[in-house]
Simulated assay, not measured.
Amino acid sequence: MATGWAGDGAVQDQIDATVDDAIKRARSKLPSGPGASHCEECDEPIPAARRKALPGVRLCVSCQDALDRAEGAAAGYNRRGSKDSQLR
């Protein structure tokens, strides 16, 4: 049963679109191409196991952790939002 201007399933469609966008954004940040043998930030050697696990890796673990923390602080996702809050 639709109410107002929203069609049946409109809320779920919006949620699905948000999740799809987040997945695309995350995949676009994955490294690709040949990996680096030394970190681009601190010039420390990147272990062979890390290069094997993440093809295309460019940063050592500590520099990647610092980058992830900096980007995480700026993330704008409201993980507490309910379906109802997305209609407002």
Rank of each mutant, 00 (worst) to 15 (best):
A2M: 09
G4N: 10
W5N: 13
A6L: 15
A6I: 09
A6Q: 15
A6T: 12
G7N: 07
D8H: 08
D8A: 15
V11H: 05
Q12A: 04
A17R: 15
T18V: 03
D20R: 13
D21N: 14
D21H: 15
R25G: 04
A26R: 12
A26W: 06
R27L: 15
R27I: 01
S28V: 04
K29F: 01
K29Y: 01
S32I: 05
P34H: 04
P34L: 11
G35F: 02
A36F: 07
S37N: 12
C39E: 07
E41C: 05
E41T: 14
E41D: 14
C42G: 04
C42W: 02
D43R: 07
D43P: 00
I46A: 02
I46W: 05
P47I: 04
P47M: 05
K52Y: 03
A53E: 11
P55I: 08
G56N: 08
G56I: 03
G56H: 08
V57S: 11
V57C: 15
S62L: 06
Q64T: 04
A66L: 09
A66M: 09
A66K: 11
A66N: 14
L67S: 11
R69I: 09
A70Q: 14
G72D: 12
A73F: 07
A73Y: 12
A74E: 13
A74D: 11
A74N: 13
A75N: 07
A75P: 00
N78W: 04
N78S: 11
N78F: 03
N78T: 02
S82W: 07
S82F: 03
S82E: 14
S82Y: 04
K83V: 05
K83C: 00
D84H: 03
S85T: 05
S85K: 01
L87C: 03
